[in-house]
């Protein structure tokens, strides 16, 4: 598992693969005030990304890789 779920937070690590998207969606459907920690994430499969975009989640930490973080900020912050 490359997403670690705690009570109210999902921590993404390394490369989050396509098969995580379903679990992530289910988890987000239950948690309306979920927080996302992306600091240890290096890549996120598009399916996970669109789930995050649709859920308009609150990202508390951005990836270290600046270029990757720019992509995500544009996609996730403006909503």
């Amino acid at each position: 598992m490359t997403i670690e779920y705690t009570k109210n937070q999902a921590i993404f690590k390394d490369v989050v693969r396509v098969d995580e998207a379903e679990g992530l969606l289910e988890w987000l459907q239950k948690k309306s005030a979920a927080k996302i920690d992306l600091s240890a994430c290096t890549h996120l499969h598009s399916a996970n990304l669109q789930v995050l975009m649709a859920a308009k989640t609150n990202v508390t930490a951005w990836p270290i890789d600046a270029e990757f973080a720019d992509w995500l900020k544009l996609a996730l912050v403006n909503h």
Binding site: Q29, A54, W71
Partner: peptide, 23 residues
Amino acid sequence: WGSIVSREPWPKLADMDAYRCVL
């Protein structure tokens, strides 16, 4: 530079299909 947008309005989270690409 690059940006990601959705091709259609986001559905309610409950109705969403995570594996249909709308990006």
